[in-house]
């Protein structure tokens, strides 16, 4: 069991090292210029050199990500609770929830950025709109996934609406909600980057997307890769954090 675990960690790490080595070797062997395809060492140098500026940009992207995630979770949970109240409400609202989901937010992002004057708010709104759907649908499905026998038990003991909500529905919904949260966290980061691309805001609050755009314009491809690397690391960290949270919250369940 222990060795199987070690292999499942070691194998992908080893593969990564081999790919990096081949990449580095190919760049050296064929003298590929860094503005076409930088070698891993070029990227590492860019990361070292531009680190502080890129980290500053990353922080600003993460600010948007977390604000969007918070908005998506609060908004999504509220909408799910509203939808589950009555079939009529659901029938009225659900088509619009779906319309919102199938509309590519990238397409309406310019509109949002025009309509909402404050750029950080506009960015957050775009990212939240991308992240909210899995929260709504998973919470809704979770609130409905109550064990019917347990629900019958609550009815037999004349549980009040509030008791049924907090002692039965909410805990029953938690596994589905946590799965939704995990998806929404990844989408918030995607949303933040996409919104930054569309807004193209520079200045002090410029995010990583802006850094990538700028690096492209300036043909500073190693810097572009370095920014990409930071986004990936941030994405992995967020994924790990939500996966850990999910495990912690659901640790006693089968």
């Amino acid at each position: 069991m222990r060795s199987a675990q070690a292999i499942s960690i070691l194998a992908p790490v080893l593969l990564g090292i081999v790919v990096l080595a081949l990449w580095q070797g190919a760049c050296r062997l064929w003298h590929i210029p860094p503005y076409l395809m930088p070698s891993p060492s070029d990227i590492a140098a860019a990361l070292w050199h531009d680190g502080p500026a890129l980290l500053h940009a990353l922080l600003s992207t993460l600010e948007v990500t977390f604000a969007a995630l918070a908005a998506a979770v609060i908004g999504g949970v509220l909408v799910a609770f509203l939808l589950v109240q009555s079939p009529l409400i659901e029938r009225c609202l659900m088509p619009y929830v779906v319309i919102m989901q199938v509309t590519p937010i990238v397409a309406i992002a310019p509109l949002i950025i025009i309509l909402v004057k404050t750029t950080p708010v506009a960015l957050t709104l775009c990212a939240a709109l991308i992240a909210i759907f899995p929260v709504i649908s998973n919470t809704l499905q979770g609130l409905r996934s109550v064990d019917p026998d347990l629900a019958a038990y609550f009815r037999m003991y004349k549980a009040s609406r509030l008791q049924t909500l907090f002692r039965l529905r909410v805990p029953s919904a938690l596994p589905m909600f946590m799965a939704g949260l995990r998806i929404a966290t990844g989408l918030s980061l995607v949303g933040a980057v996409v919104a930054e691309f569309v807004a193209g805001t520079g200045g002090n609050s410029a995010g990583l997307a802006y850094e990538i755009l700028q690096s492209g314009f300036q043909m500073d491809i190693p810097r572009m890769f370095a920014a990409l690397f930071l986004i990936t690391v941030a994405g992995l960290a967020l994924y790990g954090a939500t996966a850990g949270l999910q495990r912690a919250v659901l640790r006693h369940r089968a």
Partner: peptide, 26 residues
């Protein structure tokens, strides 16, 4: 009091809180 074919326990609550449930509801 009722006992069904399945134990119908709350998976998120420990045994003590499961047993306390009818008292909580009352």
């Amino acid at each position: 009091a009722f006992v069904f074919q399945d134990a119908t326990l709350m998976p998120w609550a420990n045994v003590g809180r499961n047993v306390r449930l009818p008292l909580d509801l009352m």
